[in-house]
Simulated scan of single mutants.
Amino acid sequence: MTQALAFPIPSALGDIDAYIRAANRFPLLSEKEEFELASRFRKDEDVEAARQLVLSHLRLVISIARGYLGYGLPHADLIQEGNIGLMKAVKRFDPERGVRLVSFAMHWIKAEIHEYVVRNWRMVKLATTKAQRKLFFNLRSMKTDSSTLLPAQVADIAHRLSVRPEEVVEMETRLSGRDLAMEANDDDEDSFAPIAYLADQSSEPTRVLEARAREHLQGDGLQAALATLDPRSRRIIETRWLADDESATLHELAAEYGVSAERIRQIEAKAMQKMRTVLAAA
């Protein structure tokens, strides 16, 4: 049986830096330890097993939360929301699927942080639809520099994210109005600014694991899973989920194959399940 983690939670952490230091001291779990703990929690509702799974992945939350500091929200709050996502991931994690918790949890952590940013960042009140949220979280990275977007760039981003050009211009205006200083304006050691958290994350263990899992899933693993499908199922998956440009709709594929949209949806669901099984066994 996996032993309890060697580092209990300190009774008083003091500040965010102390919390980060404490979180980074929790040891990473081996695949065998993670499987055993997850199995205990899933089968026996062992709360101690769940606790160890959460504590060993706190550094993952911290790492992901750093990516959202540019929105001017407190780092501690971003981490707190991410921790909620981590706990949800642990609750839903199935070790039998052959996927490590670090890969499974990233979706839940980012989802909680996304919701928090949208709810609390006062400059963005129109990010209510799925397309607008996608615009909100992608516009910064899609801009090549800090200058105002040119009309051609606006049109290109609007097309790629399926929004109106006017929405791109509006969102850019709102984002540019919330600049955050890289350094604090005073010498108060309790002041927090992005410069205090910038670091080379290329060697971060969770980043290495994430990159390795993503490379496998997007490369050999994906191709192997697609190869198990019949030609019709493969075309449906490729045009619905892997298209470089606009994805095909259920109705478009239904017309192409002379069946109902519901039938296309059923084929798609069956193909996705088959691919998940292949990827989990890889």
Rank of each mutant, 00 (worst) to 15 (best):
T2V: 13
A4D: 11
A4Y: 05
L5H: 12
P8Y: 06
P10Y: 11
D15F: 00
Y19T: 01
Y19K: 12
A22D: 14
A23T: 02
N24Q: 13
S30Q: 04
E36D: 14
L37T: 10
S39N: 07
R42P: 01
A49Y: 10
A49T: 04
L53W: 14
L55V: 03
L58V: 01
I64M: 00
Y68T: 02
G70W: 01
P74A: 02
I79Y: 02
I84G: 12
I84N: 06
K88V: 06
P95A: 01
R97A: 01
W108L: 05
W108P: 04
I109N: 08
A111I: 08
A111V: 11
I113D: 02
H114I: 03
R119M: 08
N120H: 05
R122A: 14
M123D: 06
T129L: 06
R133W: 09
R133S: 00
K134N: 14
L135Y: 11
F136K: 02
F136Y: 09
N138W: 00
N138F: 03
K143I: 08
T144F: 02
T144P: 00
T148A: 13
T148I: 13
P151S: 04
P151Q: 05
A152V: 04
Q153M: 14
Q153N: 11
V154H: 04
H159I: 01
L161M: 11
S162I: 05
V163D: 02
E166S: 15
E172Q: 14
T173C: 00
L175A: 02
S176W: 01
S176G: 02
A181I: 01
M182A: 08
E183S: 03
E183F: 15
S191G: 02
S191Q: 13
F192H: 08
A196E: 05
Y197D: 00
L198V: 09
S202V: 12
S203K: 13
P205I: 05
T206F: 15
V208T: 15
E210C: 02
R212S: 11
E215I: 12
L217V: 07
L217P: 00
Q218F: 14
A224E: 08
A224G: 15
A224H: 07
A225Y: 11
L226E: 12
L229C: 06
D230Q: 07
R232V: 08
R234S: 08
W241G: 00
D244Y: 09
T249G: 10
H251T: 15
S260C: 01
S260Q: 04
A261N: 03
A261M: 05
I264A: 04
M272R: 14
K274R: 15
R276V: 05
V278M: 06
